[in-house]
Design a protein around this nucleic acid. Structure first.
Lengths: 123, 123
DNA sequence: TTGAACCATTGACCATGGTCTATAGTTTTA
DNA sequence: TAAAACTATAGACCATGGTCAATGGTTCAA
């Protein structure tokens, strides 16, 4: 590699330890920016280093339970400055409610399983 | 309808309050039995009433978190008597562990969200 | 016998986050 | 200049539990 602000997909994927296909998926979904294709169609693309930060934001957002579609919204808003503190909080709190709902549902299932286990033991 | 031990798909679906398509799906997956097609291909099928109980077992198993593929195993074993008490217990305990794992994972996500919220408030 | 209501069968589609393959073009190294 | 290594692009595929649509055949009541 050459010290530069652009890299080819292989270098980006090795830097971030994700697959090239994942990068291409993010690209197709509009999550990346600063991608150039010098000559013509089918020629190798160059990815600006800003995408490293972007993909780290994606990974972090995913770890918080956000889908890629939601990541897109988050990143876009972050970048154009329309995601202020209040809106960040709101997004997080909404996702927390979703998570809580899922936990609740699983706990109900667990209770049913416990009851089923009891019944089985009584037989 | 006529009092009988067989019914057509519409009656079965109305009795159980599930869609005809769902019934057909269960059938394709081998979860139902006692289905006859009198004359030839494409003629109306008759569903034995034993399928009412079967589908109730499916619904109950689903409420316990079992997939349809797992339901098939459960029903088959129930019917041919190879699902004894010990094995039932084992199935339930295994599923409980799965559920617990999912709950744990969601709780971790929730913790991350809480931390993210704190950070947002500190700004 | 004809129309209404019903049915069987097949296959596509939904979301999710990728992975994998095939085909063909590009860049780089020897 | 040729081979090796890399890439782009498009599309199929995975699991899940159904739903929906299209086509064409069946059953039943009038």
């Amino acid at each position: 590699m050459v010290y530069s602000f652009i890299m080819k997909i292989k270098e980006l994927s090795e830097t971030l330890k994700i697959s090239k296909d994942a990068i291409r998926l993010y690209e197709r979904m509009g999550l990346l920016i600063d991608i150039t294709q010098p000559h013509k169609e089918n020629s190798y693309k160059e990815y600006g280093v800003s995408n490293i930060e972007r993909i780290n934001v994606i990974k972090y957002s995913q770890s918080l339970g956000f889908s890629l579609k939601e990541c897109k919204h988050i990143i876009d808003s972050l970048m154009d400055g329309t995601l202020n503190q209040a809106e960040k909080q709101e997004l997080i709190e909404l996702k927390m409610k979703e998570i809580d709902q899922k936990i609740l549902s699983l706990k109900k299932t667990r209770t049913l399983l416990e009851e089923a286990l009891k019944k089985t033991c009584e037989q």
